[in-house]
């Protein structure tokens, strides 16, 4: 369920945002998000921007993991 795709906000007008997902653009409702600016990233689902997000999932993974298993992360070897 809930296919979501991250997209970059191109423009915002009257509660509607034009978003860009790797070159595919679509107008979505921005009514759930109070302050949205061009350049922000949002998670889009069924024509709705459901959350403002950061662009990078990997940096997030690193910080989440560091908080529960700092030893492994810091001593991990590179492959």
């Amino acid at each position: 369920m809930c296919v979501g795709i991250p997209a970059k906000v191109v423009s915002v007008k009257d509660g509607t945002a034009l978003v860009d997902a790797s070159g595919a653009r679509r107008e979505v409702s921005a009514e759930l998000l109070s302050s949205l600016d061009p350049g922000d990233y949002v998670m889009v689902h069924a024509g709705l921007a459901i959350a403002k997000i950061t662009a990078d999932d990997e940096a997030e993974a690193a910080s989440v993991l560091s908080s529960i298993a700092p030893a492994e992360v810091n001593n991990g070897t590179e492959d």
Binding site: V3, I5, A7, D20, A21, S22, G23, A24, R26, V44
Partner: peptide, 13 residues
Amino acid sequence: CAPAVQGLTGLLG
């Protein structure tokens, strides 16, 4: 696969 095709298919699952 061109990025725009990926974006389109991503939006539509």
